[in-house]
Structures are given as structure tokens and as C-alpha cells.
Design a protein around this nucleic acid. Structure first.
Lengths: 111, 111
DNA sequence: CCAATAGTTAGGCAATTGCTTGACTATCCA
DNA sequence: TGGATAGTCAAGCAATTGCCTAACTATTGG
């Protein structure tokens, strides 16, 4: 098992392109071959391969080749990591706003 | 109010750089000036401005200038949008796995 | 008014991204 | 065995990113 520790850089980079998000979308409904991923994409197969490479670099997708078909699958742990990072910043901000609200309410009372 | 509909492209692109995530991290603890954002970053102020522009383009940060100081703040709705996108793909994948598990369990029973 | 502070604009440069085409390898199946 | 299928490699090109320095504007405080 290749212990991959994908960076947030590569994860978010991988998600920052509509073609790649389309591929993720497709893979969220189940595994697919490279050609299946390419079908709706209106670009050459090598281009799709490059996008796939970036998704793999970000740890978002894994693939293995059986016969002449490479089958790709989503790697939900990576998605989870990215999701957590965003969630933490967002909730920290929300908490800060709550404390500010409390402070202002207390100010109000002491007047 | 400038009704901005930031694209997922620009949001994820904005988050795909450690300097920019550092700025988001800082802003999750409260508003800050451009110089404050720049302080820990070991790069020129113009470079920081460019990163800030990408964060604003992604809708993740807003800023306004008062006197000679530009104050930046987090825009949690945008973060929320990115978070939701990831969450939906991830949970769709999980549900598919659940159904697959159910199917296999049912197969098991009928044997 | 003048100097320090805070930010902005412009130009330039190396690396990366996103795509192409053409040529190639490996596998499958009639 | 030979042709169709699935994928891969390599070179090349335009656009974008990420950084810099130098020069500039706008504000503030003494």
C-alpha cells in the first residue's frame, strides 16, 4: 500500500478545474475507465490522462490497469481531508463572530 | 452589495496555494490589513496583493480601504459552497458503497 | 509641510498548466 | 494472425502563475 500523504495544495489544485471536477462527479457514481471519463469531455485522450494524473497526485483518485483497461475510483479520505480543512476555517470564523456578538450584547447590558 | 457568484474553479484555485491558505487561516481568526497578512509570508507586498486578488476573485475574502489601510475579512459563504461540493461527492460515493454492501449481504443470505 | 507608512501599478522572467498531434505499445477477439 | 480497442509517450505551443524590482500615489502624524 503506497502510503500517500497528498498535500492540500495538490488536492485543491486537482479540484480547481471543471474537467477534473466532472471526472470526480462521474467517479462519485462508481468506478470508470479512462475512456468512460473522457467520453463527455470534448478533449483528446492524452489531455484526459493528464487530468487523471493530477487527480491521482492529489490523492483524490486511484487507478489500476487490468488487461488493457485502466479502472479509476474515488479516494474519499482525500476529499474528506480537504473538506475538513475548509470546515475548520469556516467554523473558527463563525465562533469568533459568536464571541463578538456575546461581547457586544454584554456591552449593551452594562450601559 | 455586489452580488458575486464566484465559481468553484476560482475558489479551489484560491485554496490551492499554501501562502493563500495561510492568509485564510489568519483571517479565520479575525480581519487583518494587507501588511498583517504579509508579515509571516516572506515575500514582497506586491506578491501578497496578487494572492489577495485571487482570494477575492474566488469570493473567499472581501476587503475595503479606509484611509490608507485595506482591511480584509473572510467570506464564509464561499467556503461553505466549496465544502458542500466536496461533501456531496464524498457522501454520494459512501452511499453507493453502502448499497453495494447491502447487495453483497443479500447475496450472502440467499446462498 | 514633510517624512514615514500603506498600498498600488507596471514590467519582466522562469516555471507550470492545458491542450494539441503523431507515433507507439499492449491486449483482445474473430 | 491481424485488426480493432485502450491506453501511453513525447514534443511543442499559448496562456497563466508566482515571484521579483522599481517607481509611484495616497494618508497620516509631528
Amino acid at each position: 500500500m503506497p502510503n500517500q500523504q497528498p498535500s492540500l495544495d495538490l488536492m485543491f489544485q486537482a479540484l480547481a478545474d471543471p474537467a477534473r471536477r466532472g471526472m470526480v462527479e462521474r467517479l462519485s457514481r462508481g468506478p470508470a475507465s479512462v475512456s468512460e471519463l473522457a467520453r463527455p469531455l470534448d478533449m483528446s485522450l492524452p489531455a484526459v490522462m493528464q487530468h487523471l494524473a493530477m487527480l491521482e497526485a492529489g490523492g483524490i483518485v486511484t487507478s489500476q490497469k487490468v488487461g488493457r483497461v485502466r479502472t479509476c475510483a474515488l479516494q474519499p479520505q482525500a476529499l474528506s481531508l480537504a473538506e475538513q480543512w475548509i470546515n475548520q476555517r469556516r467554523t473558527q470564523w463563525a465562533q469568533r463572530l459568536d464571541r463578538l456578538g456575546d461581547f457586544l450584547a454584554a456591552e449593551e447590558e452594562t450601559q
